[in-house]
């Protein structure tokens, strides 16, 4: 209950459009290493200097993940030249199906400066835990899909120093995300 209230309070701060000077540093997240969609080891800290959007998903996701990526396409468009200072990190929670090749192919269909990451299940679980996210494999024996992956939908916005500053709920609009990113980009660290 206490955690839920804390999360709700953070979301309210975002939706209230607080001044960037008041953007809280949210005590979740941190550096991690996974494998990128070019099959190279990737360290989050290599993105220092950029605002970073992180979310967890999977490419067979029929609805939530493509909707989020479509929304981010609009965010990048609306940010204009400032979009060059924003990197999106898409972390799969379905490493069995989402190989680096699949991640690269599917992310290429969205106009988002995104890097797809995968890893072993323990590696991914470590990052999921680091960000307070969650996922669950849901067997679908009577479906052509075989299994789905229930997953949290929060979009994590990090500042240029890799500190988590805003948690955008799935319902956040393009304008909400653009506004929040601009505040982060204006924040001097």
């Amino acid at each position: 209950m206490k955690n839920s209230l804390c999360f709700a309070a953070l979301l309210l701060l975002v939706l209230a459009g607080c001044h960037h000077a008041d953007l809280p540093v949210i005590p979740i997240g941190g550096n991690f290493t996974l494998t990128d969609f070019n099959n190279r080891r990737f360290e989050l800290s290599s993105l220092r200097g950029k605002a970073v959007l992180i979310f967890f998903g999977y490419t067979s996701c029929p609805d939530v993940c493509p909707t989020t990526l479509s929304k981010l396409s609009s965010v990048y468009k609306d940010l204009g030249t400032e979009s060059q200072r924003v990197k999106t990190v898409y972390i799969t929670v379905d490493p069995g199906r989402d190989t680096p090749t699949v991640l690269k192919e599917d992310l290429s269909s969205f106009r988002v400066d995104a890097i797809g990451l995968t890893g072993t299940k323990p590696e991914i679980d470590t990052v999921v835990k680091l960000y307070g996210a969650s996922y669950e494999i849901v067997p679908l024996p009577n479906s052509a899909e075989k299994y789905a992956v229930a997953h949290s939908t929060t979009l994590y916005a990090l500042d240029a120093d890799g500190r988590t500053r805003i948690l955008f709920p799935y319902e956040a609009s393009v304008d909400d995300i653009v506004k929040g990113l601009k505040e982060i980009l204006e924040t001097r660290t």
Binding site: N3, C6, F7, K129, A133, S134, E136, A150, T153
Partner: peptide, 17 residues
């Protein structure tokens, strides 16, 4: 296969199909 939230992390709902 389940990743439970850590007790010191904010609550986050999940979308499922």
């Amino acid at each position: 296969d389940s990743m439970a939230m850590s007790a010191d992390k904010p609550s986050q709902s999940m979308m499922t199909m």
